[in-house]
Amino acid sequence: MSGVALFSQALLVGWAIAAPVGPIGLLVIERTLRYGRAAGLVTGLGAASADALYATVGVAGLGMLTAWLTRLALPLALFGSGFLIWLGVATLRRAPAERAAAGAGAGLAGYAVSAFALTLSNPLTVLSFVAVFAGLAGRQAPGAVAGVVMITGVFCGSVLWWLMLAGTVGWLGGKLSTCWRRRIDTLCGLLLLGFGAALGVRALLG
């Protein structure tokens, strides 16, 4: 497979993993509406960086590390559950008046780190990368160049999705009234609580 074709397929993998509506998507939407496009984009970049890290493990086929991450699935899932519930409560308690503040500087770094940690709280993602990359590489361990191409493609695909989502939400947000922004905030907070509770129950029930 040519480098361009491999990159294109890996880009689609990154896009497909990022695109489904989930906790990170809700965070990007909520932060974009509240703090602006930059906040939403760096949140997505944090998630994309975690995807790239897991993609690296998947490409390298690090069996011991994969097994170790799998054993950590329960505590990490519980961490993710608690983190989502906290984010949901914080979103519901935050006043609409705070909307114009806290969108730059250290706040942006915090948005990226929180999304990175939340994405890493699902270590089983690495197993999907192992399976997908095995298919792309023809069931053979990819070489160094092919591995870099696949990891880069995953990262770019993920970033592209978050860039489009933050840009679209930012554009729509400028047309929404304060009342509708608050309603969307409330919906995002409730959904984050729901995702957190579901993740915790699923982790405990195995």
Rank of each mutant, 00 (worst) to 15 (best):
L6S: 01
G36T: 02
L62V: 08
V159Y: 03
L205F: 07
L41D: 08
L172I: 14
G157R: 01
G40R: 07
A106Y: 01
P23I: 09
V149F: 02
Y54D: 00
G80M: 06
R37Y: 09
L199S: 10
W15R: 05
L176E: 09
T56I: 12
K175W: 15
V89F: 01
V28D: 08
L41H: 09
F116C: 14
A112F: 11
M150C: 03
L92A: 04
D185Q: 12
L74S: 05
A144F: 14
I17Q: 06
G196D: 08
G110N: 13
A60T: 08
R71H: 12
W161L: 15
L199F: 09
G157I: 00
A10N: 00
A144M: 14
M150Y: 01
G88C: 08
L127R: 03
G44K: 03
G44N: 06
L26I: 13
G107Y: 13
R37W: 11
W15K: 05
P123N: 05
I184P: 13
I29Q: 06
L192G: 07
F195I: 15
L74I: 13
T56K: 07
L163A: 10
P20D: 01
G147H: 02
L26Y: 03
L45S: 07
A73C: 01
P96N: 09
G61V: 01
L45E: 06
C179I: 15
G138Y: 02
P142N: 00
G138T: 03
I24G: 00
I151W: 05
G200E: 06
V28C: 15
G46F: 05
F195H: 06
L26V: 14
G36E: 08
V21W: 04
V148W: 10
C179S: 15
L160C: 12
L191E: 09
